[in-house]
Simulated assay, not measured.
Amino acid sequence: MKIMFYLSSCDSCRRIIKELSLPEEVNLQDIKKEPLNSSQLDTLRRLSGSYEALFSKRARLYTQRKLKDKKLSEADYRDLLLEHYSFLKRPVLVLDKDIYIGNSAKTVAAAQEALSR
């Protein structure tokens, strides 16, 4: 599976997609128009090691709901990720068995390296 989960209205996602010059075999899925389904999320969890690794603690809803004051379980993270697209740390690039989560320079550089192989 080669896919990037992103948000088309996110400047960082658009910049990273352009920077990576993704090959045609990488499918793009705008998570606002086509939210993650449970099967996709479970696959991402297997690749990343946890739902928490996929979860954005910078999401507005995270602050609004005061979730930082709560002890969230893996099941809570899963439910929240399925509930609203903004909880996904983005972009998420899957290249077969490798996963790159987020927009840090280190992550983008690692994804670029993987794509150039």
Rank of each mutant, 00 (worst) to 15 (best):
K2P: 02
I3S: 05
I3T: 13
I3V: 14
M4A: 15
F5Y: 15
F5S: 11
L7G: 14
L7M: 12
S9L: 10
S9R: 14
S9P: 05
C10M: 10
C10W: 09
D11V: 11
S12V: 10
C13P: 04
C13I: 05
R14L: 13
R15D: 12
I16F: 01
I16L: 02
I17W: 04
K18I: 04
K18T: 12
P23R: 08
P23V: 07
P23G: 07
P23Y: 06
P23I: 03
E24I: 13
E25T: 11
E25W: 06
V26M: 00
V26N: 04
Q29G: 09
Q29V: 07
Q29C: 11
D30G: 06
K32V: 15
K33A: 15
E34G: 07
P35S: 07
N37F: 03
Q40S: 07
Q40E: 14
L41Q: 06
L41Y: 04
D42L: 09
T43E: 13
T43K: 12
T43Q: 13
L44R: 02
R46H: 14
S48E: 01
G49E: 09
Y51P: 03
Y51V: 09
E52I: 01
E52G: 02
A53M: 08
L54Q: 09
F55Y: 08
S56D: 06
K57Y: 01
R58K: 15
R58V: 10
R58W: 02
R58T: 14
R58P: 00
L61F: 00
R65C: 00
R65A: 01
L67D: 00
K68D: 08
K68M: 08
K68N: 11
D69V: 00
K70M: 11
K70R: 10
K71R: 12
L72D: 03
L72W: 02
S73M: 06
E74K: 03
D76E: 07
D76H: 04
Y77V: 01
D79R: 14
D79H: 13
D79Y: 09
L81S: 06
L82C: 10
L82H: 07
L82Y: 05
E83I: 02
H84Y: 10
F87N: 01
F87T: 00
F87S: 00
L88G: 06
L88P: 05
L88V: 04
K89R: 15
R90L: 02
R90K: 06
P91R: 04
L93M: 05
L93C: 08
V94W: 02
L95H: 11
D96C: 03
D96Q: 12
D96H: 09
D96K: 14
D96F: 04
K97C: 07
K97I: 11
I99M: 05
Y100C: 05
G102Y: 05
N103S: 15
N103D: 14
N103T: 09
S104A: 07
S104Y: 00
A105P: 01
K106V: 14
K106P: 09
T107I: 13
V108P: 04
V108F: 02
A109H: 09
A109S: 08
A110T: 10
A110G: 10
A111S: 06
A114D: 07
A114K: 15
L115R: 11
S116T: 13
S116N: 13
S116K: 15
